[in-house]
Design a protein around this nucleic acid. Sequence first.
RNA 1: GCAGGUGUGGCGAAAUUGGCAGACGCACUAGACUUAGGAUCUAGCGGAGUAAUCCAUGGGGGUUCAAGUCCCUUCACCUGCACCA
Length: 798
Amino acid sequence: MYNFTKIEKKWQKHWQANNCFNAENNSTKPKYYILIEFPYPSGAGLHIGHVRSYTALDLLARKRRAEGYNVLFPIGWDAFGLPAEQYAIINKIHPKDAVKENIVTFKGQIQSLGISFDWNREFSTTDPEYYKWTQWQFLKFYEHGLAYKSKKDINWCPNCKVGLSNEESSGGVCERCGHSVTQKEKDQWLLRMSAYAEPLLEGLDNTSFQEKIKTAQVNWIGKSTGANVKFKIKDTDQNLVVFTTRPDTLYGVTFMVISPEHPILETLKDKINNYDEVQKYQNISKNKTDFERSELNKDKTGIKIDGLKAINPVSREQIEIWVGDYVLMNYGTGAIMSVPAHDERDYEFAKKFNIPIIEVIKGGDISKEAYTGEGEMVNSGMLNGLTNKAASTEKMIQYLEDNDLGERQTNYKLQDWIFSRQRFWGEPIPMISCDDCGWVPVPEAELPVLLPEVAHYEPTDSGESPLAAIKEWVHTKCPKCGKDAKRETDTMPNWAGSSWYWLRYMDPKNNKDFVSTEALNYWGKVDWYNGGMEHATRHLLYARFWNQFLHNIGLVPHSEPFEIRTAHGMILGANGEKMSKSKGNVISPTDIVEEVGADALRTYEMFIGDYEKEAAWSTNSLKGCKRFLDRVWRLPENMNTNTGYTNESLVHKTIKKVTYDIENMKYNTAISALMIMVNEYEKMDAITRDDLLILVKLLNPIAPHITEEINELYHLGEPLCETSWPTYDEDKTIDDEYEMIVQVNGKVRGKEMISTDTSKEEMEQIAKEIDNVKKHLDGKEIVKTITIPGKMVNIVVK
RNA sequence: GCAGGUGUGGCGAAAUUGGCAGACGCACUAGACUUAGGAUCUAGCGGAGUAAUCCAUGGGGGUUCAAGUCCCUUCACCUGCACCA
């Protein structure tokens, strides 16, 4: 047998030495930009799941090059963030060095797979030459009023004294120490992403993302339309404004609920008779985590505000105002109107606290449950008799606007992007705080603001970034007035570096600009971007937001950065569970490459099943793929010196199938078509040089090393990395003969090989002469005959 | 709850427009070659039946000459979002 390790090393070296996969920036060829989500170089090494998505797009990259495209297929490292920092703390090394080490490991692992990345464009988000431009772009956001500082509640572990992300505080406890998480107010930088909610939604129309990814984005943006309605608070000059999607039910409002954080509780506290009780409730809510306030807390709590009443703007009835922590301050106006007759939550609340329920839509039995369907409007003044929800909503909004009681309003779930992290290992936010001038941006000429070269990167007791403890770094001069000033000690989230990296790949060595205009104009959009479903919401929104902003200020030519976005399914352990060290089901790509070679691993991961679905690892199935490659290796033993194809339709059919399947992510069936080809070749007395050449060309994107080696060994043609993609002739995919199926009453009763140009009449005649068919026709009356040329005849009898 | 998706042999899965259900691969069984086999080759492989044939794509119903595919209904599971007003 052959030495796959030697062959693979040989060709990897060859490709690298000959710059086979380097994209050119000035090319007359058409361009094609293929992007995979750049990896986070963790200490655990490359995951078998990376191999799946890299190989899949490698097939496309290799095919596109063979089709004559100038292909950009880059890779780099997303290396800022918590895991690298943790790894560094545990191993007592500087994160910078930890990252360097991990990158070496990852790079070696990826290179051993033979993915056709353009390694000349490699960079890490932690390179000062890169994060200089991340900082520069942050200043652009600031310049255009989209970066601002504001107090925000964050998840806080009082034990570890550290801010936690939502992921780190899931279940309401600190991921690290198990202590329960509370909320702490912190001054944070935010990016005004909410201003882009509508463009981010509309922009999806200019993409060819997979439908499930578009849906995920739409849900995350969470647009809802309705109205803001003013409720006058009795005996005051104040209004309580609510957002509602159901202004049509306004006559059914019997109470209101406001969030414990609602400012009216402070401004009108003199009128509140049970203010002590209200304060107590506020305190309890404050100490609840988001988790407790939402998922756990099915039973709604609340207290009635004694002393305040609101007036229903249409029915003029006096209604109660309650405080309830199921109403969130950060959505809508922090206050809701409640229509218990037609909303399940409101119904539950009203029942629990004995609040009146007024029916305004006919159709259900409101003594039993809230009726949320459509129906005729009743008890609703001018809306009475209407049966169409849209019409009554519209009429009500019109009325509210005409009478200055409210206005049409659209709300989004999408919030501004909290851009501060109290961490060491991130891009320093390039801002300086001056007592006299306020926040002042670091001048462009002084970028990058480098992370200091010291070893104090553990979190501080105060919850501030570790940078705050480094006095000589913090103290600086105000760029505006020259007085003593302090640097911002927060760093950026690790989503920052991944929000524009595809632009840098276009021109990665540029030291005058984040990317040149020429490179931008040439490469344009990413044509095909693949990544995990877990990044279909946040990362993809951040990246699109960032790009839309750069486009709006004239820095990039397209408002949408990605044309196609697809998502691969996860590879699970052999037991069907997610791979993890603790479960002991982790498969290392390096081990597999050593055992069976990169080609077999690649083939297996493409053959494993539907690319978009998750799949469990199977060592047996891997062996089957290795066996297939072994058979390919042995094919030349039975090769003659002839040219031309032994089975022309087989060749054309296979080219068609593989070409179509690679474009449509049906990698498993592409491989199955190639297996069929090999099966057929093995049955032949001998194969020709052309038979073999076409096979290695089609198999090359999947198993690039072994095919290059066979091609070279038998002098079949030019190196496959320089060759062109084979084309097929539709006419030649059709066989001269085929097996006609004959059915009687829809059941198969006979089969017969016939010539492809047999007429309908002839087909029917041949069909009726088959013995078994005759038997089933005997004594019956033929009602009709359906004949599909090229397929079958169905005779219907009585 | 909302949104998206998936149900096909022992297993991973195929089935461009409705047209032989189970391609291809794994596992398994028998045989060949072999000192040996976790190598290779040959044959078999959804279920029942000696066979003709019948049954079978989560369940039930329908449309059709013909349904995994279209329609109605129902069940189960997975993923994402979620007191979002």
